[in-house]
Amino acid sequence: MIEFESVSLRYGNGPLILRDASFHIQPGSFHLLTGVSGAGKSSLLKLIYLASFATSGKVKLFGRDVLSLSPDELALLRRRIGVVFQDFQLLDHLSVRDNVSLPLRVTGKYGDKERDNVAELLAWVGLGQYVDHFPSQLSGGQQQRVAIARAVIARPAILLADEPTGNVDDHMGIRLVDLFEELNRIGTTVIVATHSTTLVSEYNFPTLRLSKGEVTAIPPRKGKIGRRGVKVAAKGKADKGKTNEG
């Protein structure tokens, strides 16, 4: 589903962000992308959500070399990828509901049913009473949940989350990753970029570790894949069960 073949990335004349990275992510898998701040996690995600392109090497999504795609084909491909941005990327002049509905609006498939789905999802992430608010009226954590709702509303085939638990408390963090796991269970390929050691220790997922521009694939620890869930008290079941391995 996501294939990197000897991919290098450099912005302008700057240093190499990615060096000869090669990995293959299977459909329906759940991966963590780890590395210290500034390691290039966001840059790697950008290559996947087609916001930037490799300096050298080949990136393939859904079996297609992204450099061979026309602008319209890129747009169609992006519709299959949901992204939770680190800085949320919400549009301040649109209400919470309108922000979340954007991925549906661009496809022209936004009707009464979808409108209800948006409200339902917002209620699920705890923002049911904020649908008509604007992002500037929300806290950082609430904005992040709006960003997550927007990323998942169109049921993407790939979900990328850049530090999704960075601005929420532990309880909400668990709920959000649970949501990602649920989406993963119905077939969504998930990659969560994080520098949170808690998240890495709480969950048992295959990991891509990024360090000094190099990507290392680390298989999951022995035992059940998914949440090990003992340290943080949370609603919902612990050990949500198996997900696909990468």
Partner: peptide
Amino acid sequence: SKTVEVLHLVGASDLF
């Protein structure tokens, strides 16, 4: 530019 970027990232075509 931010609005245009976000629209593109959620899958909007240039025409949209």
